[in-house]
């Protein structure tokens, strides 16, 4: 399994995502230019030029027509995927931490950081309403009083937003009322990433408390816990097998003082149900910041603090892994 290295970023990768079909990979990094690649051969398709700071989050609509990016330059931008031209640019008061297209692709949501005296907020815009974008008046704004949001995704069918917070809390906000309908605090430290299962009935969280956890999307019931000895930055559920992949490692701040073996920068594969680790993939020489499964489950990618995206196609024997039970 020789990985394809995507070398197009100058700084550490912050997030990577596949489009729904899986033929494209979107990547954003602390440099200001998100990229889009062919997942099959690693060829760069293009770059979205316009941001002026670290890009924290990226998403693509279900039909791969639009791309959404949020950055530390206090802008959230919507791009035309095919041409790479900027469609909309929404100015915010603080950095945009996480974002996402709704199921239909008509709504977008993003969350902002709690800095410079401004509260953390969730914004929701309707892309069909040109006035909202032009006048910077969102469909909905939810101010967050407590711990700030560090990761957020849409719940199923555009009804809710699932948020992970700096203190380890996970909340579900109702889009109609703007109120918290569910919350839990199974993690003890910051939630670094939330990724849904392909049918949006479950999601997996990655936390600084060295664990990743599987939750039920409706009830926030904790189903499974995957334990490591390093902070987990990102976790994804395989759409094909009962597997999850975890990426993480020693915190970037401490990395310079430790050697790569202590850091444990491997991508780690766990069985979804048994919570047992069965494999590791080495390669990054810094912590892994984002992992993503190809929608067909036959390959996965990881983006690291080292600035590389590595696309891995599984060997045939991966498909033969069987747990006795």
């Amino acid at each position: 399994m020789k990985p394809i290295m995507l070398h197009g970023h100058e700084r550490s990768i912050t997030q990577i995502k596949y489009n729904r079909e899986g033929d494209l990979i979107f990547s954003c990094a602390k440099d200001s230019q998100p990229n889009v690649w062919y997942s099959l051969n690693g060829e760069r398709l293009g770059t979205f030029v316009g941001h002026n700071g670290a890009v924290w989050c990226i998403d693509c609509s279900w039909d791969t027509s639009k791309v959404l990016t949020g950055a530390a330059d206090n802008f959230c931008k919507v791009w035309d995927c095919e041409t790479g031209s900027q469609l909309h640019s929404i100015e915010t008061r603080t950095a945009v931490r996480s974002n996402g297209f709704s199921y239909s692709g008509n709504l977008i949501m993003f969350t902002t950081d709690k800095t410079m005296g401004c509260n953390c907020e969730i914004h929701v815009y309707d892309l069909r309403d040109g006035d909202q974008l032009a006048s910077n008046t969102p469909l909905l704004t939810i101010p967050i009083e407590g711990s700030k949001i560090t990761s957020a995704i849409w719940g199923p069918y555009e009804e809710s937003i699932v948020t992970g917070h700096e203190n380890g809390e996970i909340c579900i906000f109702d889009i109609k009322s703007g109120k918290t309908v569910q919350s839990c605090k199974d993690h003890t430290k910051q939630i670094n990433d939330i990724q849904p299962y392909k049918d949006y009935t479950m999601f997996i969280t990655a936390s600084k408390d060295n664990t990743a956890k599987l939750f039920d999307m409706d009830t926030l019931e904790l189903k499974k816990t995957y334990r490591t000895e390093r902070p987990v930055n990102s976790a994804a559920i395989s759409p094909l097998h009962e597997h999850v992949v975890l990426g993480g490692g020693q915190e970037a701040m401490q990395v310079t003082t430790t050697n790569t073996r202590v850091g444990k920068f491997d991508a780690r594969f766990f069985h979804l149900v048994f919570e047992e680790e069965f494999g590791r993939v080495k390669g990054h020489f810094g912590p892994i910041n984002s992992v993503a499964f190809h929608p067909d489950g036959k390959s996965y990618s990881s983006g690291g603090e080292d600035g590389y995206v590595r696309v891995h196609y599984f060997d045939a024997n991966y498909l033969d892994i069987n747990f006795d039970y």
Partner: peptide
């Protein structure tokens, strides 16, 4: 969960202008 998912099929089709995206 799979049962619940199947029950919501109508809504999914509605949201994505009638295109079935349940399978890749």
């Amino acid at each position: 969960k799979d049962k619940e998912f199947a029950e919501m099929k109508e809504i999914r089709l509605q949201l994505r202008s009638g295109i079935d995206t349940d399978e890749l």
